[in-house]
Write a protein that binds this DNA or RNA. Structure first.
Lengths: 167, 167
DNA sequence: CATGAAAACTATACATA
DNA sequence: TATGTATAGTTTTCATG
């Protein structure tokens, strides 16, 4: 499906720095990893082409945008067949309240991360966009008290391999 | 806690464009929203200062980084007291496999989004980092078949208000 | 607050090793 | 592949409206 890519220590350090701040200049990147700026440019372009870097994203504060309440909705879609789930996914992805959508194993078929203004808004969303749909058999709502992004996404530590080869 | 911020149509359009591609230049931004590049710079700087923009992030393909399997772990932490949950949160946030962590209402206290290499790696993670911890009463593992980011995060549509005021 | 012009800095292409 | 340099382009500051 998607092939894993071989990354050397320079690539890894570049990714680590860019995950910390995606607007780090190639000059700073170069200084930090010990290669020329033009080399950094090349590396990043290659990481883009190889599909490791999917894009540059803005991280926003939902609460300051008037969406102070977030929740996870566990949804059962029955019958669980393509004719029903494909339009469901399209519809949910298009909701302005949706932040992320997961298709899962287990008793609940989908998990939807939503950001709303308040509990009244959440009630409206659940009733009008979920339980009102014929294919939605059940929705379980879990409010988010607090959430954290975790450290940078890096390849698993191999016993030794590429990560320790000399530049 | 966090105050909502008043945004005019120019701010909204800038946010919309930057969420689409966080590296859009101020020149292009300016052309798209109909103000001078230096004004865009000002707007973005203000959005940063006001906390609406939290940062610029790289979106990476986990599979191509050798983490082809992702899962959501529903975790019960008992007793659910600060002395136990604070170190739990710190520890989980620090795991290289963790992508995001949510503190929730409902029967499960935490939801952890993890990215691992394969099922063996996931089993190791669950056994060594979760069920082995005294405060972890239960872990339910749900594999992720597929996931989607949803549209840009924008303020809720108000009946009319700021969004339609004349520049 | 917004602007345009100038200055400083960055990204990028390319010739070369 | 990496580098340094040249060029084009972008960001940023600032005086002014």
């Amino acid at each position: 499906m998607t092939d894993s890519v071989l990354l050397d220590p320079v690539d890894l350090e570049i990714l680590r720095l860019l995950q910390n701040d995606a607007r780090t200049t190639y000059r700073d990147l170069a200084a930090a990893v010990g290669v020329a700026p033009s080399t950094c440019l090349d590396r990043v372009a290659r990481l883009r082409r190889s599909g490791v870097i999917l894009g540059h994203e803005l991280r926003l504060d939902a609460a300051r945008l008037g969406r102070g309440l977030q929740a996870l909705l566990l949804v059962q879609v029955r019958p669980h067949r393509r004719e029903l789930i494909d339009p469901f996914v399209d519809r949910i992805r298009g909701l302005p309240e949706s932040r992320a959508l997961f298709h899962l194993t287990g008793p609940d078929d989908y998990l939807v991360h939503v950001a709303v203004t308040d509990t009244a808004d959440l009630q409206r969303l659940v009733l009008d966009e979920f339980t009102s749909r014929r294919e939605v058999a059940r929705v379980e709502t879990r409010l988010i008290f607090q959430q954290w992004e975790c450290g940078p996404l890096l390849p698993p530590q191999r016993p030794s391999a590429a990560v320790t080869r000399d530049a």
